[in-house]
Amino acid sequence: MFRSVLLKTLGFVGYTVQYGCIAHCAFEYIGEVVVCSGPSMEPTIVNHDIVFSERMSRHLCKIQKGDIVIAKSPFDPNMNICKRVIGLEGDKICTSGPSDLFKTHKYVPKGHVWLEGDNLRNSSDSRSYGPIPYALIRGRVCLKLWPPHSVGTLSESPTRRIIKTDSDSD
């Protein structure tokens, strides 16, 4: 009697450990489901949308311009931010507003990315704190799961902030 209970408990613990490991690897290397809050990515992602973010392209360094990524906030590592990649390392970014008379430009340093929200008026992003290290990126948002009428892939950037260059093709 006692022995069978012990065996059952051991088996249960073993299964728990196994599934824990599998779940951990899945979250670490495949992806996770994220609930977004905040207005900074409207209209692409509105408040309380549920999206799926995959981790592989971050591990393989396949993040491209125009992707929406989830990154750790550079000022509070426990907080995550969801923004669109506007420039990769070496890209030239226009840092002045559309109404400014003189355009100012800035180059993104090595190993960094330039992130901006789609809602340019209501978003604190690289325009206020500068480029962030690539290693802070946690994953790329690839699918929208909720609400049901907009399930599917995400739309392109509505802000036309991404500067296309000829060197993008290679």
Binding site: C61, K110, G111, H112, P133, Y134, A135
Partner: peptide, 8 residues
């Protein structure tokens, strides 16, 4: 620390 210059 993950290097800020090179994420790898």
């Amino acid at each position: 620390v993950l290097s800020p210059k090179n994420p790898q």
